[in-house]
Simulated scan of single mutants.
Amino acid sequence: MVSTGTEMKDPENYHKDSFVQLHNPNVATMKEDILYHFGLSTGTHDFPAMFGDVKFVCVGGTPSRMKTFSRYLAVELGLAQAGIEYSNICEATDRYAMFKVGPVLCVSHGMGIPSIAIMLHELIKLLYHARCSGITIIRIGTSGGIGLEPGSVVITQQAVDAYFKPEFEQVVLGKRVVRSTELDEQLVQELVKCSGDLNEFPVVVGNTMCTLDFYEGQGRLDGALCGYTEKEKQEYLNAAYMAGVRNIEMESSVFAAMCRVCGLRAAVVCVTLLNRLKGDQISSPHEVLTEYQQRPQRLVAYFIKKSLGMS
């Protein structure tokens, strides 16, 4: 086993003026860095001019969700103008979408660990090339709750794997690399304080279990494959609850691990669409789900406004 815990920055030493750092000496020797999945390149785009003022990055699953969030954020920050639409910076590719609203970058990441990992590699390099400093990055999304009513918002304390361990494991050159998935505790508390200010919907702090799959990996009974019983499923989900897990999704572990290694202050804020102890399928009406999905956005937007001295 290879552990890279020694290369992680101590979150307590995070400083608002610190520049984004990479843990790859090869990038500094490259004449041009092509961010292929963004459709951007240091040879054709002026990253400091385009992104140098970014202080907050919000990432979420789909392009449409992030476009909607960018519109909402523009209104909240007083940057919306009649007839002006924030364009997709990654329009040269159909892989991800990116919108910039003042000091906030909104980026889609797709579904699952591989998709968000690819996005994060290029996003972190983008921030590095732009000479950004004091970055706060937050994943906003949806999840399945454990022991929570639908519509509850979970602020992640730790991202854990399917064994309930706060670590992300990856195979690199045939060797196991294990990284910590602990998130910034101070940022968690700042978000909790903001939720209290809003007092609009239930918010809890808990562990988030990150899985490699939506069906078997999360113990669902309604997939194409299922080799376990309802009783076994309930035993596992209850064990997760006893381990502090309050929701399940598919991106938080690699998100937490990569941000921690690169010294980025990071948080995960997800709404629950159902209580997995009571079922597997999401059956709430579309308008209800839409309102649920807006809850993490409202909390994070308020946090950004407060951080900017606007609330």
Rank of each mutant, 00 (worst) to 15 (best):
A224V: 12
V205L: 08
S252W: 01
G174W: 08
T272N: 09
S253E: 01
G244A: 06
E200H: 13
C259R: 01
C210Y: 02
Q234Y: 11
Q170Y: 12
Y236A: 12
V254C: 10
D222Y: 06
S195V: 05
V261L: 14
E235W: 09
L225K: 13
F164N: 10
G217L: 01
N247V: 05
L225D: 11
Q186D: 11
K165V: 07
V172C: 13
Y241K: 14
F201Y: 10
N199A: 14
V171D: 12
A256K: 00
Q234C: 10
G217Y: 00
G263F: 05
D184E: 09
G219L: 00
P202T: 09
T211G: 01
D197C: 11
Y228F: 15
V192L: 12
T272W: 03
A257C: 13
G219K: 00
A240S: 06
V261R: 06
V172L: 13
V203S: 00
T181W: 00
A240Q: 02
A224E: 14
L237D: 01
K165D: 06
A243V: 08
V268D: 04
L191E: 00
C210S: 04
I248L: 11
E216P: 04
G174N: 10
E200T: 11
V177W: 08
L198V: 06
C270S: 13
G223C: 07
R276S: 06
E251H: 05
E182R: 12
A224Q: 11
E167K: 01
V178E: 04
L221Y: 05
L198H: 06
A240N: 03
C262T: 11
A239Q: 14
E200P: 06
K231N: 13
A266G: 05
E230K: 14
E232Y: 06
L173V: 15
R179Q: 12
